[in-house]
Amino acid sequence: MRIVVMPPFDNEFFGGKDRLDLEAGNLFGMVRELDALSPGFSDVAGVRAQFAIDGVVVPDWSTSLAGASEVILLPRVGGG
């Protein structure tokens, strides 16, 4: 499935690539795949990243990716 990598992660971890193609059963698996591409990514993912599956931000990484076509990796946005 298509992974859309938002800045700064595209340049910071994936050599500037903002589109990746990976398969995984859920977001934990996805993070493992991403970490394999860029060792160290999983260390920061838990505090810096969040994911949207087909346009919906999903806080629980155990959510299944079955049938999903796109995952957006984006920074977790702070709030006041």
């Binding site: 260390d43 920061v44 838990g46 505090v47 810096r48 977790r76 946005v77 702070g78 709030g79």
Partner: peptide, 8 residues
Amino acid sequence: IMAVGESS
């Protein structure tokens, strides 16, 4: 990297 509030 630590979560601080909603950032890090």
